[in-house]
């Protein structure tokens, strides 16, 4: 969901995502009136938070979404909307972390949530490799081969 990371440090990430013009998702949600499902907006906030945590942990641990609180979807999101996604660290606990994330578009608030993640050592080398590759693609980290 995340297309590009604009900035990141140990506490905060800013990223962007472009809603595609066409998607099979819109065939059912909704016919003749395409809207991004709230669950995908939640996933977008979770991904931004996840990248923040991956960066914070130096890819030593993988965050897995375990809870969402105070989730509010405030505005409809239509195809071709450019989303600005911000996630901030609330708490770095023992084996878990909490973030607050929000999405806006053209300065208008779209949704926000408090998200909890379990953080575990990578359970599979393939997963770590894919997360690192994806992190390079979106500009979270530099390409080690470059």
């Amino acid at each position: 969901m995340i297309d590009r990371v604009r900035s990141v440090d140990a506490e905060r990430i800013e990223a962007e995502a472009l809603v595609p013009r066409e998607s099979t998702v819109f065939e059912g949600h909704f016919p003749g009136y395409p809207l991004v499902p709230g669950v995908l907006l939640l996933e977008t906030m979770a991904q931004a938070s996840g990248y923040l945590l991956l960066h914070r942990f130096g890819f030593d641990r993988m965050p897995f979404l375990s809870g969402a609180k105070e989730t509010k979807f405030r505005t409809f999101v239509t195809p071709e909307t450019r989303l600005e996604v911000v996630a901030e660290l609330v708490h770095d606990g023992s084996g878990y972390a909490v973030t607050k994330a929000r999405i806006s578009a053209a300065g208008k608030r779209i949704c926000d949530a408090e998200l909890t993640f379990r953080t575990l050592p990578f359970p599979a080398k393939e997963l770590e490799a894919e997360m690192r590759a994806q992190a390079v693609r979106i500009g979270l980290i530099g390409d080690p081969a470059a």
Partner: peptide
């Protein structure tokens, strides 16, 4: 999972 919320509250 509930215990994570409890630990978060205790931490705070």
């Amino acid at each position: 999972l509930d215990f994570l919320d409890i630990v978060f509250a205790i931490d705070k």
